[in-house]
């Protein structure tokens, strides 16, 4: 039983949960299926040796589940069933699979000594010892003073990327405020049903 086997099982579980979430008529069971998919993803993160990623994943799943159940339980509404557009679904699936195949071949052609490296090997540092990820791993402690290499990369080497992420969260929350605000909204807008 290798670790890849467990991860494959969890991915299959996630796909089934996602299909249930899309197909179920009851909103509550759809929310629970989404939560199951998210928790399976966090277990995958743990198996792949990324607790820094699994930790926020579990937290966000718990929050999302509580929030969505709290909202769903207040109304006895079920999602509307509409007839499915088969052509559109087929085109989207085809585009997605072509993209995946293209990514696979592009990663193989980028001089990574014969395709995607095996599971658990760093992608950027596998070719030689001079790879950038090897440099990060060996020099992080003396460069940044952070014992947690992930945080050293996130907030020191790659802090500019983290600034972008923080900006994304900030702007997303700002957009939520704009949609949900009560101050400064016209009187008759209160009659609009909250979604």
């Amino acid at each position: 039983m290798t670790i890849e086997f467990f991860i494959l099982m969890l991915i299959i579980f996630m796909i089934i949960a996602a299909l249930i979430a899309v197909e179920s008529i009851d909103l509550l069971s759809a929310v629970i299926a989404v939560g199951a998919a998210g928790f399976a993803l966090s277990v995958i993160d743990l198996l792949a040796g990324a607790p820094d990623l699994a930790f926020p994943q579990v937290l966000v799943e718990v929050i999302t589940l509580v929030l969505l159940i709290r909202m769903v339980m207040t109304r006895r509404d079920t999602s509307r069933q509409t007839s499915r557009d088969t052509l559109r679904t087929a085109v989207v699936l085809l585009a997605g699979s072509v993209f995946l195949v293209a990514v696979f071949f592009a990663a193989g052609g980028m001089g990574m000594s014969g395709g995607i490296p095996p599971f658990g090997q760093p992608v950027m540092g596998s070719a030689a010892d001079t790879g950038v990820s090897t440099q990060y791993l060996t020099r992080c402690a003396e460069d940044t003073g952070a014992a947690n290499t992930v945080m050293g990369i996130l907030l020191d080497y790659r802090a500019y990327d983290t600034l972008g992420e923080a900006t994304v969260i900030f702007v997303a929350i700002l957009g939520g405020y704009v949609v949900l605000r009560r101050v400064g909204r016209k009187k008759d807008a209160k009659e609009v049903e909250p979604s």
Partner: peptide, 25 residues
């Protein structure tokens, strides 16, 4: 430079280390 760690890095594995990383956190 932009995002240069301006505080002393301190001793690794101690709470007082990492320089500006703790402030950013």
């Amino acid at each position: 430079g932009f995002f240069v760690n301006f505080l002393p890095t301190g001793r690794v594995h101690h709470l007082h280390s990492g320089g500006a990383i703790a402030i950013s956190d």
